[in-house]
Design a protein around this nucleic acid. Structure first.
Lengths: 116, 116
DNA sequence: TTAATACATAAGCACATTATTATCTATCAA
DNA sequence: TTGATAGATAATAATGTGCTTATGTATTAA
């Protein structure tokens, strides 16, 4: 879809609700420009693996993110083919970058250990 | 504030969560260009008066909307002085207009009876 | 084939959110 | 002043959400 507009108020509310969780919002912002795997999210948010997986599932069910398996790892990224991509992007524009969190991971050597 | 940007991811998530309810999102979109009173919302959303008041309270607590008493009625509108106004406006841009709901009210003669 | 790692999913619990019911205050009109 | 209307708020009930624990599947490395 070419525009940022959403066709129904219900759909817009559903997407906003999904982004209305600080963990999910931060994850989505992070994968705006990066591809991340589940274990990285677990390290970054100090959360349990099932908790992260469940957040990702909601985002995937709404087709906001897509997954790519590479060996034993599953990498997540923003779904640019989603009809809501522009809408999400417009929101992320106003959200502070989360790249520091990834840099922190790299500093700890945790990024390389898991993914590459 | 001059920019659409939000300073913290938590605050951004909080606002998105508030807008992530179809009744609240529709109300906020409606008062983007209109001033509405509680009884109008009650008619429009076929909701109870306390339910509407509670939604409005959340929006007011977050300073996204402001109220103006006029006689026995309380009119709500978007708070243009909020530091998150631009952010909210940016989101509303992509949300379908809800003005039809007001027109429907007028057609039923319910708008004039209550407010004016 | 077996063990280990990465991830997904299901069930159950704790907490948050929303709606309802009841009650209270404020304004206005008689 | 009294009654009616608009709205706020408190208490409670119903529902939803997110987390943990337990377990299942896929991939890799031994």
């Amino acid at each position: 879809m070419r525009t940022k507009s959403i066709d129904s108020i219900e759909k817009a509310a559903q997407i906003l609700k999904l982004l209305g969780d600080k963990t999910r919002l931060s994850m989505v912002k992070l994968i705006e420009n990066n591809e991340c795997c589940v274990c990285e999210f677990v390290d970054i948010y100090q959360a349990s693996q099932p908790s992260i997986s469940q957040h990702l599932r909601k985002l995937r069910d709404a087709e906001l993110v897509k997954e790519r398996r590479k060996g034993q790892w599953v990498f997540y990224s923003l779904n640019k083919e989603s009809q809501y991509y522009k809408f999400v992007l417009g929101i992320l524009e106003s959200v502070p970058s989360q790249d520091e969190r990834l840099k922190e991971l790299e500093k700890q050597g945790l990024r390389i250990s898991c993914c590459e």
